[in-house]
Design a protein around this nucleic acid. Sequence first.
DNA 1: TTGTATGCGTTATCAA
DNA 2: TTGATAACGCATACAA
Lengths: 346, 346
Amino acid sequence: MKRKLTLKLIAKELDVSISTVSKALRDSAEISEDTRQKIKAFAKLYNYKPNNIALSLKNRKTRTIGIIIPQIVHHFFTTVIRGIEQMAREHNYNVIITLSNNDFDKEVLNMELLANGSTDGFIVSLAKETLHKDDFRHLTEAIDQGMPVVMFDRIVDEIPCDKVMIDDREGAKMGVMHLLKTGCRKIAIITTKDYVTIGKLRTKGYIEALESYGVKVEKDFILKLDTIDHCGDDCSAKIKNFLKDKDIDGVFTVNELFAVTAAKHLTAIGKNIPNDVSIVSFSDGELSQHFIPSLTTVSQHGELMGRKAAELLINKLERPEEEVEEYTTAYIDTSLIERESTKKIK
Amino acid sequence: MKRKLTLKLIAKELDVSISTVSKALRDSAEISEDTRQKIKAFAKLYNYKPNNIALSLKNRKTRTIGIIIPQIVHHFFTTVIRGIEQMAREHNYNVIITLSNNDFDKEVLNMELLANGSTDGFIVSLAKETLHKDDFRHLTEAIDQGMPVVMFDRIVDEIPCDKVMIDDREGAKMGVMHLLKTGCRKIAIITTKDYVTIGKLRTKGYIEALESYGVKVEKDFILKLDTIDHCGDDCSAKIKNFLKDKDIDGVFTVNELFAVTAAKHLTAIGKNIPNDVSIVSFSDGELSQHFIPSLTTVSQHGELMGRKAAELLINKLERPEEEVEEYTTAYIDTSLIERESTKKIK
DNA sequence: TTGTATGCGTTATCAA
DNA sequence: TTGATAACGCATACAA
């Protein structure tokens, strides 16, 4: 097993000092053209690459951004990551991803791993379990130690850091408005329990839309589920039960899996989509496009979100030390993608 | 912005030497009970965590495994990652992921980033573009420098490293056999061009299955597409065209998106699934479960694959230096998951 | 029982 | 123009 090439080895081989090698490789004017050429040729030949670890230690900077997210299956997260990577690349930063699998302990572990030297700052979407536990010490500790943090998607208001969100309330409102505009009046919502901020806000948007149309909000028409990231048998049964015998002509869901599950149960009891019941869902997944009928969705522009998050983080990383702390919350617009699960506006 | 706590700072604060602090924190017997307690209490109070970068530099080991994959949307990769992380955790390794987005340059960049100190070894699934370019210098360079590499999923035979594969030929054969067993005889396959190893092998399994049943292989029944990871308009049109007017009673596809697309076009021309045409697909996605009808699939056990890949890598990392190089290829079994897109075996 | 010195790979400062 | 030295944060062999 060959040892990696270091300045020291090059120096020994060429019989010069380490610092001469270092300077030559960085094109320092101090070094004579001759030796510089010689050293550079040698380094190139043997494919010398400086050791990032040593550089990080020396500079106390890694130029690496850490991303901590719950799951990666979601198409949404992929698009966010892409956005982050774009922006990072433009500013010469690298990106490293770790997954929490929606597990609190793992989120903490991952943060500690990355916080102890591997990363200059974090972009985080919290694990479900973390939100549930309401325990954010790992975040506040990182922040206390001077690690800039940007939260996105799953936000907690009280954490002092930059945040990037979509306007969930507005987005939900837009989705429900679309249902209203296409003629629906008996609209149910399948959402999450209120401890998930996004669920709460989207429920709010739903209510606002109905009210703006003078439609009464029926408590019976609101289903709040515990799960977010997948829809197991239990969740499916709850949706089935919720839809059974309900006189509705529209369903709004806060994610794609709820929508698909609802669509299945509706179809099973003989309802036609969109003629009997229309469906609109928050989503960024592939499911919506490929499902039959394809689903009208409120789309989240994950790439923009990622770019914005990275931009905020890099700003913090490169701002002069003395500057006052100041946290901004950026909002990313949503947009409606019409597909087959809703009727045309007349 | 507070500076991170270091041994040096603790030492100064407590008026002892750095090595005393270091030893105390590592419970060295050299240090008196008294000072040890004092130091540990202080460290705990101020939440001291050793700097990983410094440790890595010192030990020339990071205890970190780097994963380089093309895309993460695929449910399959998520399960593989989970497997890797499990095994890594059990052996006290950490895991870092980077995405190539199926882009060659990015794959190279990512490998270089991680190779220059951040990781002890790699687990890699190659980008599509890399396979296409047939340029693997970044891999061989890493290997030459003593970085152990394990390839999975998208393999290249000539690279000297450990490999984890599923038996694509066997899996495809099993899928097609199922179609045969349920009575299909006119079975088409939608696969990838042969430069993608998995596509090639699966095509082979398809042919073997047919032959074992004495069914003639029709060239017309084989569609080789260029894309792998998504199925855009162009790809969809090709599938549509391929299926049009074709007298078939079964379709086998090498991925879920091809299957869904095929199912749509078949339904559109009035075919019932599974009564007129049955479908079996290679897949690990959510689409198969949620599609209507849900799809019978050949499942890949990504988690096992991940575990195996990590195990092989860790073995290499912890083996004594002098040992001879020896590369193994591990095969992971596939299994058939029956759903609604195929008929029952009589 | 505690402290000093050295090295991991790099760069920056200063001396030669 | 080149080289020696110190420092980044840590662990450890050795000296006190």
